Computed example of a mutant assay.
Amino acid sequence: MTSPSPFRRDGNQRRRSLLGLGLAGLLGSARAQSEERLTVLLEEFAPYSFTDARGQAAGYAVELARELLARARIAGDFEFSSWPRVSRRAQLQANVLLPAIVRLPEREAQFHWVAQIGLRQGWLFRLRSRSDVQPRDLDAAKAYLTAVIKDDVSEHELVTLGFSVGQHLDRSADYDIMLRKFFAGRSQLLALNRVLAPELLRRHGHDPQLIEPLLKFSESRPSMALSLPSSASLAQRLRLAWDGMRRDGTVAALAARYGMPLPD
């Protein structure tokens, strides 16, 4: 019986070594993906995002984000805060996902944009009991004080239209404060997304029938965005996962459940 040649033995060992290295590389890559985490920043803004009866994050944008991260094989930590803090952290920290932020020209270069998740119409509302508040157009609306959320899309849009913070706009840190001030008469107009206004008021303990829309001031695109310090490759993974959700009908099904309009 002839003994195996040294060349064959070395070749087998080399192949086994290369195979081991290849498997180790694949396992290392899979482990790195599974350990990758995103911080998902939210505000109390039903039905996009809110805290449910069990104290868990819920809502249209939350469900979209959970499905997106599952498909991209990325872990997520969901955190609530006020919108000014959410916006600030998203511009400074890597691996931060905003599942619901309106895409504006001035924000274009501040984020990696992942997907458009809906349509939005900004309107000015008044109390039905305030028949004395009768602006005929947006210029006339500047004679009144309009309630807005600090750094929110409505504030940005109204400032672009010539409204001034302090003179025309009354800023609040969150919706609970803003609505309490508005119903107490500290402002005469209220800037809200018309589609979401009824649910928003109900969740904060106010009757939606007490207000009525007066003037439309914008149309815009609620979107999902990744913080700019995050890697471009991570943004692309999320976009690919979103494309799959859109193609298989997951996005449309969630939008229908929450009554959200989608772009054509």
Rank of each mutant, 00 (worst) to 15 (best):
R9Q: 15
N12C: 11
R14M: 14
R16A: 14
G25P: 08
G25S: 11
L27D: 03
G28F: 00
R37Q: 10
L41C: 02
P47L: 06
R54M: 14
R54A: 13
R54N: 15
G59F: 03
Y60S: 07
V62D: 05
E67V: 02
L69S: 01
R71Y: 05
W83K: 11
A90N: 14
Q91F: 03
L98K: 15
A100I: 04
V102F: 08
L104V: 05
E108H: 05
G118W: 03
L119F: 06
Q121D: 07
Q121N: 11
F125P: 01
Q134D: 09
L138M: 00
A140N: 00
V148Q: 10
K150F: 03
E157K: 07
E157W: 05
L158F: 01
T160M: 06
G162L: 10
F163L: 01
D170L: 15
S172Q: 05
A173G: 11
D176P: 04
R186L: 07
V195S: 11
L196C: 05
A197L: 11
L201D: 03
L210W: 12
L214H: 06
M224Q: 11
A225C: 09
L226V: 10
L240I: 14
G249W: 05
V251K: 01
A252K: 15
A253V: 02
A255E: 07
A256P: 09
Y258T: 02
G259W: 04
M260C: 00
